[in-house]
């Protein structure tokens, strides 16, 4: 029989101890979670940065056009 089924619900300490393999299991899961979070941050930063650069380009061109219009007047 599965030892956990006999014991019922394992305690939190038991769960965290991972049968003595806590360092391995939690490090592996922790690094994977960290990589996911960093990926989200990087992908969003890339999207926002591109939008910002497009806005700056648009702003520069608009002000250049306005300057030309002023000169022509």
């Amino acid at each position: 029989m599965d030892p956990r089924a006999r014991r019922g619900v394992p305690s939190v300490t038991e769960f965290l101890a991972m049968g003595g393999y806590a360092a391995y299991v939690w490090t592996a899961y922790g690094i994977t979670l960290l990589v996911l979070v960093l990926n989200v941050a990087a992908a969003r930063r890339r999207h926002r940065g591109a939008l910002r650069r497009a806005r700056e380009l648009d702003g520069r061109e608009t002000s250049r056009k306005q300057a030309t219009v002023r000169q022509l007047r």
């Binding site: 992908a43 890339r46 591109a50 939008l51």
Partner: peptide
Amino acid sequence: LTRLKGEIVE
């Protein structure tokens, strides 16, 4: 998709 959106805008 998020990265692709950034790449498209760029």
